[in-house]
Design a protein around this nucleic acid. Structure first.
Length: 574
DNA sequence: TGAAGTTTAA
């Protein structure tokens, strides 16, 4: 029997959502909704296992509200459904409608930012800094859409981009390695009138170094006075920190030696270097930097010692760690909550759970006040040791101590619950976040997505993906990679292709092994037409990577039309 | 995000 597995990825004419009823067109008829067990938590979690006779799987194609059809229009369930909130005022409602309208336009794949500018011209919305901010964040993993919108918005009468919006766009172009466009924007900012700040140049330097263009990052520092940004100690420290954090502490030392005659270093400059050497696990150099620090008249501080302690923690040399702690106390530079967090965490990770918990007592004895990160680390250790109840009760202790749990707290708990296959508890925590107005991030979803892939819970996976979109959290490169490979390994190769195509269309270049894995599984499943499509994707991705051009989508969009993992049937074809 | 610490995952 031919099993039909409809996979729709991006909007085609046929599936283009109609205005005003986008929600219903988000999903194919087979239905995606809040799972029953979720509204009825008493139901056995085992029953959420996806019914395998329902393979319809469609990614959300708009960012509009997901419809409430799963509620049957009656009482509102305990819901983390996106789109439930009602705008506070008429103005808010108008804003939300405009944002949805822009999102609808941008969600159709365009060949270039210029094509978006043209398409946007029939979009009657009111541009504001708030809207630009919202759209840039929402399309944070789609630079073509974001930049097209940004150019269009900047050309609207009565509106000028704020410096902060420019910085956001600069950062995004840098994130996607569109450095020519990035520099073009910087020039524009400068010509308009002094909009380039150290904040702007910080993003430039960090993105360049992040792309292993260390020399360009240093060059950017040298030429920043052309844009009216002063090359002072603060600016130098940013460059040093950037180089250290982006795997090039030796270049940082070079820059430091070169600049020392013109830019006076401060305590921060030395601490940055010490930390850089420590992270690179080059302890002799770290100690040398500490000596040099003292020669310059700066005493090593709690920050300096903490960096050193962290390095010995990485070496699992706890004897030296305890010795440094004693030195600190004797020198009148006692460890603080950050120092203790590092030590406790390292002990926990090394499996020395009890010793780690003893640090908690020491902290209290020292009169040191635990903060959220400290508690989060403690929760992580308890979760790792399988003590989930203790981990959860730690949240109560946090609240009692006046330290409210934050995203990382929930993420840690959710991750621990998922690790122990406690899906229901994990999802309850997601609800609790919503109730406590704690905004989830990508790390909130990753363990949940992983669990869904493992268990083949396709409906819940889709539910979560929609929930993410509504919260303006789009999968990043590693999340896409993980979704593709997990689905593949867990018997859902067709669904895996969806994410693979989405990934390529968004301008990410999947790793060769990701392609290889998908091809292998499609081969095994005799999914020949899907295989052809993936072969096309490989070509597209390679072409996009090679040209690095902003027009990569011209091919991608055209290929998507033909290749159509879009509105297509990948069944067994033999 | 960024002079030190916590959460994903290969």
């Amino acid at each position: 029997m031919r099993r039909c597995c409809q996979v729709i990825l991006s909007p085609t004419r046929k599936h283009r959502p109609r205005k005003g009823n986008h929600a219903a067109s988000c999903f194919c008829t087979a239905g995606f909704g809040l799972p029953d067990w979720f509204r009825n938590p008493k139901k056995d979690v085992g029953s959420i296992d996806d019914d395998n006779n329902n393979d319809d799987f469609v990614l959300p194609i708009t960012y509009d509200s997901v419809e409430q059809r799963s509620h049957g229009g009656s009482s509102r369930p305990l819901s983390i459904l996106p789109g439930c909130s009602t705008p506070a005022s008429h103005e808010d409602a108008e804003f939300e409608a405009d944002v949805d309208e822009v999102s609808r336009v941008l969600s159709s794949r365009f060949a270039s930012p210029e094509a978006i500018v043209i398409a946007m011209d029939c979009c009657p919305v009111r541009v504001s800094a708030r809207m630009v901010d919202k759209i840039l964040r929402r399309f944070g993993s789609d630079w073509v859409a974001a930049f097209g919108f940004f150019m269009w918005a900047g050309a609207q009468e009565g509106y000028c981009h704020a410096a902060g919006s420019y910085d956001l766009m600069v950062d995004m172009l840098g994130k996607f390695k569109q450095f020519d466009l990035m520099w073009g924007l910087i020039s524009q900012m400068h010509e308009i009138g002094g909009l380039v700040s150290l904040a702007t140049m910080t993003k430039v330097m960090r993105r360049l170094a992040g792309a292993s263009r260390w020399t360009d990052a240093i060059e950017a520092f040298h030429k920043m006075d052309r844009f009216g940004v002063v090359k002072d100690t603060k600016a130098m420290n940013v460059l040093l920190d950037t180089l250290c954090k982006e795997r090039s502490v030796k270049r940082a030392r070079g820059v430091f030696q070169e600049l020392r005659g013109t830019v006076p270093p401060d305590e921060g400059s030395f601490n940055t270097l010490v930390h850089g050497w420590c992270k690179a696990r080059m302890l002799n150099e770290a100690r040398d930097a500490m000596k040099e620090m003292e020669e310059h008249g700066f005493k090593p501080s709690v920050i300096t010692y903490t960096s050193l302690i962290e390095a010995y923690c990485m070496e699992k040399d706890f004897q030296t760690v305890y010795a440094i702690l004693n030195t600190m106390r004797s020198k009148g530079c006692p460890p603080n909550v950050i120092t203790y967090t590092i030590v406790m965490h390292a002990l926990g990770k090394a499996g020395r759970t009890q010793e780690a918990l003893d640090v908690f007592d020491r902290v209290k004895r020292d009169g040191c006040v635990p903060d959220a990160s400290f508690y989060n680390s403690l929760i992580y250790i308890l979760g790792r040791a399988g003590r989930l109840e203790d981990a959860n009760s730690m949240v109560d202790e946090m609240c009692r101590s006046g330290v409210p749990p934050n995203v990382a707290t929930f993420n840690t708990l959710i991750s621990a619950a998922c690790d122990h296959s406690q899906a229901e508890n994990a999802l309850k925590l997601l609800v609790k976040m919503e109730v406590q107005s704690c905004k989830p991030d990508i790390k909130t979803y990753t363990p949940l997505l992983k669990l869904c892939c493992k268990k083949q819970w396709m409906k819940i996976l889709l539910f979560l993906v929609c929930h993410m979109f509504k919260k303006d959290i789009t999968p990043d490169f590693s999340t896409y990679t993980l979704l593709v490979s997990w689905l593949c390994r867990n018997g859902k190769p067709a669904q895996s292709c969806l994410f693979l195509e989405e990934m390529v269309l968004k301008g990410f270049t999947p790793k060769q092994e990701t392609f290889d894995l998908v091809m292998e599984k499609l081969d095994k499943g005799n999914l020949h037409s899907a295989k052809k499509k993936v072969q096309l994707l490989i070509v597209q991705a390679a072409a996009a990577k090679h040209t690095g051009s902003s027009y990569l989508r011209k091919d991608a969009a055209a290929a998507a039309q033909n290749c159509s993992v879009v509105s297509n049937t990948c069944g067994h074809e033999s």
